[in-house]
């Protein structure tokens, strides 16, 4: 059993979002970077749990990014995983990133490819589906539970107003979200062993991104809050009905 977990780097969830260079670049100054929470808490931890059940499981991590991102990959290795690959390139767009990962997957033949449901910066929710299409594999998106029985996976995925239970034979691609696993904190042993785990930088293949970001903008600030006294909640209902016209 061989699992690939795709890891992205994102700004911390509390980061203040601003832009530089005429609103064309994210302002990284003073921003802490983390492993994309969906990749870490759900995709990676679920893969580690599967390895704990079946120790013969091999977990590979892949990240598309420059050398400075090695620290993020080591952090992921401290949680678990046997070996990591960094595709030495700036992630162009979803299509570019998916294509690079597919190139690795074609050599390594994974039984399972896990991604987070989306990155918390670009919110594309696309890389998993793209990998599946490139490799002509089934794709279970927005999974909240994953169980394995031999070569068959039983996966619960979120749908409008509920959930669906699916069954598919490996190999498959799964995008993971809340419910898949519980967040973990790396222990000292994990942190020490992560230092010596193999982290290979590989050169990217030539792929042209299909999209590019031309500029960013921030939402218009709110006009200011209208406070209503606690002893007159009927006034709030009147305002919502007559002024905001929400119902």
């Amino acid at each position: 059993m061989k699992i690939l977990v795709c890891i992205s780097k994102t700004p911390d969830t509390t980061a203040k979002i601003s832009f530089t260079d005429n609103d064309t670049k994210f302002n990284e100054s003073g921003v802490q970077f983390i492993i994309n929470p969906y990749d870490e808490w759900y995709a990676l931890v679920r893969a580690i749990e599967l390895k704990e059940k079946d120790p013969s499981t091999i977990i590979h991590l892949v990240h598309v990014g420059p050398a400075e991102n090695d620290a993020i990959i080591r952090k992921a290795l401290a949680l678990g995983g046997d070996e990591a690959f960094r595709i030495n390139s700036h992630p162009g767009d979803d299509y570019y990133v998916a294509g690079q990962i597919v190139n690795l997957a074609k050599e390594q033949h994974y039984d399972l490819i896990f991604t987070g449901k989306e990155t918390i910066d670009y919110n594309g929710s696309s890389v998993g589906g793209m990998i599946a299409e490139f490799l002509e594999l089934p794709y279970i998106s927005l999974a909240t539970k994953f169980e394995l029985n031999g070569n068959t996976a039983t996966i619960t995925r979120e749908i409008e107003g509920g959930e669906e239970v699916d069954e598919a034979a490996l190999p498959i691609v799964v995008s993971c979200q809340k419910g898949m696993a519980e967040q973990r904190i790396p222990n000292m042993r994990g942190i020490m062993s992560a230092r010596t785990k193999p982290l290979k930088a590989i050169e990217p293949v030539a792929i042209d991104p299909l999209t590019s970001i031309s500029s960013f903008e921030l939402p218009a600030p709110k006009q200011g809050v209208k406070m209503i006294p606690a002893d007159n909640p009927e006034e709030l209902v009147r305002l919502l009905h007559e002024e905001a016209k929400v119902f």
């Binding site: 767009d93 979803d94 299509y95 998916a98 919110n123 594309g124 929710s125 696309s126 890389v127 998993g128 589906g129 793209m130 599946a132 299409e133 490139f134 794709y139 998106s141 927005l142 299909l210 999209t211």
Partner: peptide
């Protein structure tokens, strides 16, 4: 979210989600 990325690859066409 499940179809659009597949379409993007199949049609080799850019996706904005």
């Amino acid at each position: 979210k499940a179809i659009a990325p597949r379409l993007s690859v199949r049609l080799k066409s850019g996706l904005i989600s």
